[in-house]
C-alpha cells in the first residue's frame, strides 16, 4: 500500500512536468497549428537559467523566477520573429517549419552548452526541508514535489481562466478556431501569435525552473523532455491544452508504475512506445479535437 501511494506521488509529480510541457506545446499549436519541436529546449533553457541565476548568482527566488520567465519568453518571441515569420512570408511548406523548430532546438541546446559548459549541474531546491510525513505513516513527500504539483496545477488552472474568461484569451482561442475569420473581425493575428510564443516560452521556463532541482540542469536534457511532452500531448489530444496536461499525469503514473513493476531499465522507452502506439491507433488522443490531420 505504501509503495502504491509513494508511486502515485512520484508519478503525479513527474507527470505534472510532462503536463506543463504539453501545455506549452498546445499553447502555440492551438493558435498557429505549428508544433514547436524546440519546446523541450525551452524547458532546458529554464533549467539552465535557474542554475545560473539561483545557484551561481544567488538571486532571490522571486526575482530569479521573474527574470528567467521573461528571458525565455523573449527568446520565444525572437524565434517567432526571426524564424517563423520569415518562413511564413515565403509561404514555406509545413515541413520547413517542423525542421526549422528542430534546428532552433539544436541552436538553443548547443549555445547553452557553449555558455554554461556541457556538464550536468545540480540546482538548489526552491524550498529546503525534510520529507513531510503523511498522516504519521512511512509515506513521505519532499517539499520540492509539493511545490512542483502546486505550481503546475496552479498554472494550468490560471491558464484555463486566462483562456476562457479574459478577452485576450478569447482572442487567442478565436485565432485557433479560424485565423482568417479572426483577421476579418479585426484581430491583429500576428501580434496575438507573438503573445502566444511569449506565453509558451514563459510556461516552459516555469517548467524548467521546477524540474531543475529534481533532475538537475543539463544542456542536453531538452530533447528527451520534449518528446515526453509530445507523448503527453498526443495521449491527451492536441486540440485541448488541458487534455495534454491530463495526458502528462497519466504518462507520469504509467512510467512510475512501469519502472517499479515491469523493468527499471526499459522505463525510458515507455513514453516513446505510448507516443508511437497512440499515433498508430488513435492519433487524435483520448480527448480529441474536432478535426485532426
Amino acid at each position: 500500500m505504501t509503495d502504491i501511494i509513494q508511486l502515485i506521488i512520484a508519478g503525479v509529480s513527474a507527470g505534472s512536468i510532462y503536463g506543463i510541457i504539453a501545455l506549452a506545446f498546445t499553447t502555440i499549436y492551438n493558435s498557429t497549428k505549428i508544433v514547436n519541436f524546440a519546446q523541450g529546449n525551452f524547458i532546458m533553457l529554464g533549467s539552465m537559467l535557474a542554475y545560473y541565476f539561483m545557484a551561481l548568482q544567488k538571486l532571490p527566488i522571486t526575482v530569479a523566477i521573474i527574470l528567467i520567465v521573461t528571458l525565455t519568453g523573449l527568446i520565444g518571441l525572437s524565434m517567432k520573429i526571426f524564424i517563423i515569420d520569415s518562413l511564413e512570408k515565403r509561404e514555406a511548406p509545413l515541413f520547413s517549419k517542423i525542421i526549422a523548430t528542430l534546428a532552433v532546438g539544436i541552436i538553443l541546446s548547443q549555445s547553452a552548452a557553449l555558455i554554461f559548459g556541457k556538464t550536468k549541474y545540480s540546482v538548489p531546491p526552491l524550498i529546503k526541508g525534510d520529507p513531510i510525513k503523511l498522516f504519521s505513516t512511512n509515506i513521505g513527500i519532499w517539499p520540492e514535489n509539493i511545490i512542483l504539483i502546486i505550481i503546475t496545477f496552479g498554472s494550468v488552472i490560471g491558464f484555463w481562466i486566462f483562456l476562457n474568461h479574459t478577452s485576450l484569451g478569447r482572442v487567442i482561442r478565436a485565432i485557433g478556431y479560424n485565423p482568417k475569420a479572426a483577421k476579418i473581425a479585426g484581430i491583429q493575428t500576428s501580434k496575438i501569435i507573438a503573445i502566444t510564443f511569449i506565453l509558451s516560452g514563459g510556461i516552459s521556463a516555469l517548467g524548467g525552473i521546477i524540474v531543475a532541482p529534481i533532475v538537475g540542469a543539463s544542456p542536453y536534457m531538452g530533447m528527451v523532455l520534449g518528446v515526453k511532452g509530445f507523448s503527453a500531448t498526443i495521449l491527451g489530444g492536441m486540440g485541448n491544452p488541458f487534455a495534454g496536461f491530463i495526458g502528462g499525469i497519466i504518462l507520469g503514473l504509467v512510467e512510475a508504475f512501469g519502472s517499479y513493476y515491469i523493468s527499471f531499465t526499459y522505463a525510458p522507452v515507455i513514453a516513446y512506445v505510448i507516443l508511437l502506439g497512440m499515433l498508430m491507433i488513435k492519433p487524435t488522443g483520448l480527448w480529441p479535437e474536432k478535426e485532426a490531420r
Binding site: V269, Y272, L275
Partner: peptide
C-alpha cells in the same frame, strides 16, 4: 500504420521510433 499520418504527427511518430531504437541500443546491454 504511421504513413497514414501527416505533417507533425508523422514527424513525431518517426522521432518516437528513433528514440525507441536509441534507448534500446543503450539499455539492452
Amino acid at each position: 500504420p504511421i504513413l497514414k499520418l501527416h505533417g507533425h504527427y508523422l514527424a513525431m511518430a518517426t522521432i518516437a521510433f528513433g528514440m525507441i531504437v536509441e534507448t534500446m541500443a543503450t539499455n539492452w546491454i
